[in-house]
Design a protein around this nucleic acid. Structure first.
Lengths: 234, 234
DNA sequence: TTTAATATAGTTGTAGAACAACTTTCCCTT
DNA sequence: AAGGGAAAGTTGTTCTACAACTATATTAAA
């Protein structure tokens, strides 16, 4: 079950990009040259380049050349939107992934947080309180998301931060609907406070523990909500 | 700034899939027919099909045809990968992400593990022991990776599992080098055992706790190793 | 009749040549 | 030195041909 030729060429170019032999901004050799390098026809080679650019690794300009792209994750979010239309994303799996990442992020945040960081976090925490008081569930969900996003920023780990941004964007609409129908969201405020305080007091294990509990509870609520919806339909 | 022809064709086919005119499992018309439908050459059409399949919407079998794929969460990971790879993560950030995901995976694994699962896990655990005894550090690293991969499989969360696969692929070469220079790896065996036993006894919090400690220790070791290397260079 | 092997037609993968569309480079004119 | 324009270079598209693989239909055997 050998992979197709174009797939093999794709893998090679992919590896070169991943291994930083080709860096963002670099221009790939012209197609003719690449054809000779890999001993394939131009059709085959172009299929490989096509895949690279479809996945966002490269960008091709007619007459100009093919360039390695420096990707910011937001570009990919645009691709998500249509993808979401074709499939109800498994919300629970996503939320579990989120729990994994945020728990670790909270731990690191408690280690790294500066005065500035905690001030920003507290501001957003208070914003959440205001929106909750106003009972504006959509604004509340957005503020909650910001609160969590800030923690992942403070963590200082760009990978955690980027993944969180992506996951949040995927989850947010559904969470907003969920919250709007629930009508209220009391516990979040409590947990947010003790998570924030743990971070302020530089207590990594505490922060991680509360974050884990906070999100586990949220997942349970969503589970209950989903199964209640199912019963309603029967 | 008109989009290229192949891009236009891609958009049309994409819309048909999103709008459910083409449903998962459906076979697209043969390329010849599609060429006539859109009045483009086969190369151009194939560029469009290529993009669809690169993004995971379709699957093409040589001689068989092109079929619409049932989009599952793994599709989203196609978008994660570039974001992950081009962010130039350093090893420590990756390992922290790994710690986050594996800790959560261990927790779920302890909930879900069947008899079969734990048997498989134990087999791999023993394999690790054999390689350690033989002092074959490269084989040991590979076996260790399998051990962890199995846990993420048992978790039952496809997102965790796939992310782990990706991360492991990125980390493995560096971990092999690290282990080879360290010369030995005693603690892993101890932690693997208690993690495995926690999963066998269906103790989620225990499994998570030990996994977290196991990987935190590993990260510390790598940190020491890196700073020692730096000193050596001065 | 059913089944299995085989031939046939249909479909995708790869190759190569040719030209169109667009960009970059270089040279010439001013 | 600056601007304009020709020339060379590069990617986009078309066309033809064949290889590699699959699905279907036909035929022969049980």
């Amino acid at each position: 079950m050998a992979a197709s030729l174009s797939e093999q060429v794709y893998e090679k170019l992919f590896d070169m990009i991943v291994q930083k032999e080709l860096r963002p901004g670099d221009r790939l050799p012209p197609e003719k040259t690449l054809c000779e390098m890999y001993s394939v026809s131009r059709n085959t080679l172009r299929a490989a380049l096509n895949k690279l650019s479809a996945l966002g690794f490269t960008e091709t300009r007619q007459g100009g050349g093919t360039f390695v792209k420096a990707v910011d994750s937001n570009v990919y979010l645009n691709f998500f939107v249509p993808a979401l239309l074709t499939h109800n994303p498994d919300l629970l799996e996503l939320m579990q992934l989120r729990k994994a990442i945020e728990t670790e992020a909270a731990r690191s945040a408690a280690v790294n947080a500066s005065e500035e960081d905690t001030a920003k976090l507290r501001t957003t925490y208070e914003e959440c309180g205001r929106q909750a008081a106003k009972m504006d569930m959509y604004a509340l969900a957005a503020a909650n998301t910001r609160f969590h996003a800030i923690i992942s920023e403070i963590s200082g780990n760009r990978m955690l931060e980027t993944l969180m941004r992506i996951i949040n964007r995927m989850i947010l609409p559904e969470m907003q609907d969920f919250l709007a129908r629930q009508g209220e969201d009391i516990d979040s405020n409590y947990y947010h406070r003790i998570i924030m305080e743990s971070i302020e007091r530089h207590k990594p294990d505490e922060a991680a523990f509360f974050m884990d509990k906070h999100l586990a509870l949220l997942i349970d609520r969503v589970k209950q909500y989903i199964s209640a919806e199912k019963e309603k339909q029967e």
